[in-house]
Amino acid sequence: MGILASGWALIPSFTVIGLVLGGTYALAAMGLVLIYRVSGVLNFAQGGIAMFSTFIAYQIAVKWGLPSIVGLFAAISAGMLIGYVVERFTMRPLTGRPALTKVVITIGWLLILQAGAGLIWGATSYHAPVHLVSRNGFRLVGTSVIIGYDQLTTLIVALVFAFATAALLKYTMLGTSMRAVADDPDTGKLWGISVNRVTAASWMAGSAMAAVAGVLITPLINFNTYSLTLIVIDAFTAALIGRLTSLPWTVVGAMFLGIAETYPRAFFNGAGVSSLVAFLLMLVTLAILFRPGFSGRRTV
């Protein structure tokens, strides 16, 4: 692992890359938080859902050569469908059961999606990424930093989703219902809210966000069925920084994580040190934010 002399010179452009990476993490993490707040289930299959939906987009946009935007919407639909199936057939029958049982079920889904995608698209080889927009870019005024249109798009999509989710929760009937169910499902029922429907909606929205995150991240990593699934751990770290409840802090955490993972690449060869930084960040977050006695109960 040699130290490159040109490390510091790369920092400005790596900041852009880090923020873009963080934007995709933020999407996946917000989906995680949404599902967790409404249904109380920490979705370990989030990466699996992102991966499977992304491969749907890959099939359509890269293999069949249709416009990328069609692939993106197919991926979103696939994500929503998977989210619905998971909630309707494996979460709803267990209503009233301990949340941990449901969490272990998401591990089962992770295995199913992972093996299923491996069977369809092959488990080991890397695939060509899904490009939504051209890779051309522009020079940031007054600097030497070049920002690609694809990078800009990713960042904008991530921010739009963040604000849209916040607006959904705050201003719409569905969002109000979600927050009510997150507070207390039983009280929600008393107010005439269909808890099942709201929970299903949260799973669908959360999974759709995972799907978008997966499609957007493909140009940034070598993607195969395995590496794409692993964004679940980055999503967890970002969500933990948001204490699994706060969407704004989740976005901040995701951006911070993206940058923290990117900077080491300016100084070290290989991805090892970046992974170490991500792991340490998670460890520190767990140690600082989750004191003994924090049971992970849903609060708003």
Binding site: L100, I233, F236, L240, G272, L283, G296
Partner: peptide, 28 residues
């Protein structure tokens, strides 16, 4: 020791990935 249930599960997942991508990776 400080964590239980869900958060421990996340931690061990993090350990497994940290080992995969750093400790056991070629070059480390």
């Amino acid at each position: 020791l400080r964590l239980s249930g869900l958060f421990l599960a996340i931690l061990t997942l993090g350990v497994a990935l940290g080992a995969d991508r750093y400790l056991f990776a070629n070059g480390t």
